[in-house]
Structure formats: C-alpha cells, structure tokens
Write a protein that binds this DNA or RNA. Structure first.
Lengths: 225, 225
DNA sequence: CCTACCGATCGGTAGG
DNA sequence: CCTACCGATCGGTAGG
C-alpha cells in the first residue's frame, strides 16, 4: 500500500479526522452529532475534539470556552431554521396567508427533526453570558420574525382573527414547538413520524386544525370536512 | 447551649440533612431541586446525596442505579401530572366539554412550570432499560388518557369536530406541551408568564384559540370577539 | 496544533 | 448508613 510513489506522508491520525483548515466548523459538526444522539448532556468539548480527530486542547484555538461553541451552534441553528421556513414559504409564494402559515409550521417541525442537535441547543434553555453574543440574539430575532410577520399579515388582511400578533404567534409557535419536541424526545409513537412525508402531513394537519378550530362548527353539527 | 439537660445527642451532620427514615423520598426531592434549577444534566446521584445530607454511597440502598432514581422521579411526576389535571377538571365538573379541555390544558401548563423537574424527566427523552419499569409506563398511560378521554367525549358528543381522537389529542397536547416547554426553557419573555394567574390566562386563551380557530370566521369579516 | 498536567465530578463497588 | 477507593470524564491551563 505504501510502496508506490515517492515522498509518502502518512496521514496523521484516523481517517475521520479533519486535517484541513476548517477545524472550527468540524467541531460544530462534531458537537451536533453528540447533541442529536445524546442530548445536551452529551455535548463536551473533549468529545467533540475527539470526533474531529484533534487533541482536547485544540478547540480552544477556535472557541474561548464551551459556552462559545454552544453559542456558535445556536447561531448557525437559528440561521438554518430561518432558511428552512423560508424555503417552505418560497414553495408556496403568493398563496393564501393561511397556507403560508402552515408552510412555516411544516418547516419548523422539519427543522426540529432533521436538525435535532441545533434545535436542542437553540431552545434547550442554555444561558449565555449576557451581551456576549449579539449576533446570536439577532439570528434568534430573525427566526421569530418569520412567523410573527406572517401572523401580522394575516391579521391585517383579515384572514386571521383580530388580536395581538404576539399572542396569536405564540399559539402557533407553541403548537409546532410542542410537536417537534415530542417527536425528538420520542414521546410520539415512532411509527407515526418515521418518514418526512408523515411528519409533513402531521404538521400541516395540526396547523390547519389550529386555523379552523377544534370545535365543531355550530349550526352544522358534526358533519363537515 | 449544650450545658442544660442530660444525655445530649448532638445532631449528626447539617441541619438540612434528612436523618428520618424516608431517605428515598428525600433523594427524590433533592433530585428534583437539581433538575428544576440546572436541567437534566444537573442531576447526579452524588449531588442528590449531598443535598439530602448523606454520603454518596447511601443512595444505592434505595436505588439500584441512577436510572432507577430517574424512573422513580418520572413515575411520581406522571401521577402528579394526572392529579393536577384532574384537580382542574374537578373545579369545573359538569361543565361543557370544551371548558374541560381548556381546564386540562391549564393544569398541564401549570404542572410544567410548577414541577419543572418532574416535567423535564418525564418528557426529556430519558431512555429506560426496556420492560424494567412497568409501573412507570402505566402511570404515563394514565396521564395521557386524561386528555385523550376528554377529546373522545367531545367528539362523541358532537362538541368537537369528527376525527381520530388520537390526532386531535396530539394537536392539543402539542400546544400545551410547547407552551410549557417554551416557558421553562425561558423562551417566552419572563414578564409575560411571571405569575400563576398570567400563565393560567395564557394557557386558557391559547386552548380556546385552538378550539375556535385562528382563522377569521368567514361571512363575519374580522369583527367578532 | 501538541503533550502533560490541574482540580473537580461522575457512577459504581468493596468492605465494614 | 459510612469511608475509601476504582476508572472515566470533564473544563481549562501551561508551555512549547
């Protein structure tokens, strides 16, 4: 194997090591793998370093401490969440705002499941040294505004009931957040949410239910739909 | 201080130690304190033992390992959750089933906030050695049935739209679960949910919204409520 | 980027 | 119920 060719440089460490320049991103990826598999308590700088194939002191070249790695993951997560919702919205651009609210909900749940590591870090109650990560706060606000702007538009255009946009947004947010959480924490029977299509249908059906109401419509007792 | 009286037995250890017989429950209480404050990763047998005022080997007299403590907390949590919802239901016995669904939702959110430690353990994705904690599974099923039976009754009586009870239940569950999670993970502005009355109003308003629908009623464009 | 080290904490066991 | 110990892991730093 090593006999052919001249000037052979044996690859250092194992094959999965990231010897290229982007250790920072490699550490984020490693952290995500730990998070998705074992939850927040499985994330450690040392384990991430090991996964990336470097010594446990190397991460400190890129992150001042563990909190900084967590913050970097969270910021990336917010941006991906925003993009995920916007991608769903782009696929139904121009449609009724109720349709678009559902699309955002579908994107939110898809993100939770497909980026469980990011999702747990973002919303898992991590506390950061205040004022230390301004771009993180900005990214979080941007993600919230995707939903919030949709709801505002719906209220203004008369397609959603009048009310405080933040209150209506919180209702919609709670529903998709709860569904996402229940799925990744395995509190929903796995068979119900095994495929992306199943999860899409579930998220869309539930947000539709929120829009139309759980109660039977008065006057048309229990027959419609 | 020690001079008066005869045969004085100095109290062992610190004042907060539980020297009475119920170390088992004391350890559960200690574990809950750790969980509520620092999340799942803050729970350790050793820290719980220290809080209870015993050596770190003592817990093994009552729990075969850490998982057993977690399972005990989870089971107690499910029973408290069931009772919490039933207490809310008892306060509106005989009322319309829509009112009772809201009451169960209020109870669920109240439990999440007031028993954050229990709540995190129950739904935090802890995995148990399969088949090892049958009473835990039973307690979980009982809690789920409170909501599920209500929804079934609502469908049967025609007050809720026709449909799969499990599907409608999941929608309601997701909403209150999401709200509870967002609150305890501090993703809702604290000022909005500082008091029990605020949280009650929020939970009730949101479940009402789910019942009545987020969409404006057709034919009565943007004016009612 | 490394090795080597620090003090702290963890789950769990031995042995009494 | 205790002390004493095990091996493992953690965040972080020194020094190169």
């Amino acid at each position: 194997m090593l006999s052919r060719g001249m000037s052979i440089r044996v690859t250092r460490k194992r094959a999965d090591a990231y010897q290229h320049g982007d250790l920072r991103h490699a550490l984020i990826q490693a952290g995500l793998k730990l998070l998705a598999e074992g939850g927040l308590s499985a994330l450690s700088l040392r384990a991430a370093a090991q996964l990336a194939g470097v010594s446990h002191a190397a991460p400190y070249r890129h992150f001042r401490d563990k909190e900084a790695l967590v913050a970097a993951i969270a910021e990336e997560g917010f941006r991906l969440l925003t993009r995920r919702m916007q991608d769903e919205l782009a696929a139904c651009a121009g449609a009724d705002v109720l349709v678009r609210v559902r699309a955002a909900g579908v994107g939110y749940v898809a993100f939770a499941v497909e980026h469980a590591g990011h999702f747990r870090v973002i919303f898992g109650g991590a506390e950061y040294t205040p004022g230390c990560y301004p771009t993180l706060d900005e990214a979080g606000g941007e993600a919230y505004r995707v939903l919030r702007d949709l709801v505002s538009e719906g209220i203004t255009s008369g397609r959603l009931r009048p009310g405080d946009p933040d209150e209506l947004s919180l209702a919609a947010w709670s529903m998709v957040h709860g569904l996402g959480m229940l799925i990744i924490d395995r509190n929903v029977p796995p068979a119900l949410v095994a495929t992306a299509a199943q999860r899409r249908a579930l998220a869309e059906g539930m947000t539709r239910l929120l829009e139309e109401g759980l109660a039977a419509k008065p006057g048309r007792p229990g027959r419609e739909r």
